[in-house]
Design a protein around this nucleic acid. Structure first.
Lengths: 110, 110
DNA sequence: CGTGTAAGGAATTCTGACACG
DNA sequence: CGTGTAAGGAATTCTGACACG
């Protein structure tokens, strides 16, 4: 999969245009560990569309008065629940295909 | 649809990193009408992932010795054949749904 | 804590031009 | 025709710091 959404290719100026956030804020959220841009060879930050979406969620939280530390926790929680979901999904798929296999083979899978 | 692929957000330096093409070449292909970056407020060029893919195709053609004018023709031809395909597809879908409608209603669609 | 700002330097981007071919 | 390069200016980005609160 090419995954344009995850590819880090957008400079901070464009991120500012797209989100309305000041460059200062964007850099600060990185400093606080909420976001992790890649770096080009000469050190300029590069963001993905996914990063931009996250930044907009962060901006919403901040407007509600939520502190960056809180937001960071939420992000980590969300991330781990996604991993969990993916693992459960994988588990179900494996079960499914094992069943299909055993039906086809007339015996249980190895 | 958000269409990350078509969104023009990538600066020429990153395009250079991604394609290996010199900035001179990238600008020249624009001058010849092969590619159409957007511009930021202060005039810096912005490219989409789609543009980058097209640039790589252009680079291949150029390596084969094809002139920019030829390449431009190919691009236009490809574009119009896509439009044609889309129109035919739309036609088929319309026909399909008209049939389904008339089956459900017991009469032909308006 | 979160954000603005002025500071200075380094890297980026732009345009129009000359070169070679 | 297609591309490199040197030129000069304008805009971008970076870091570390001070300010306010």
């Amino acid at each position: 999969m090419t995954s344009y959404r995850e590819k880090k290719v957008i400079t901070i100026g464009i991120v500012h245009e797209l989100t309305g956030l000041s460059e200062r804020k964007i850099r600060y959220y990185e400093e606080r560990g909420l976001i992790f841009p890649a770096r080009s060879k000469r050190g300029t930050r590069k963001y993905s569309f996914s990063d931009i979406e996250l930044l907009m969620k962060i901006a919403d939280k901040r407007e509600e008065g939520v502190q960056t530390q809180e937001i960071k926790r939420d992000i980590l929680k969300k991330k781990s629940s996604k991993h969990l979901r993916d693992e459960m999904l994988r588990g179900q798929l494996n079960a499914h295909f094992n069943i299909r296999k055993s039906q086809h083979n007339g015996r249980s899978a190895p």
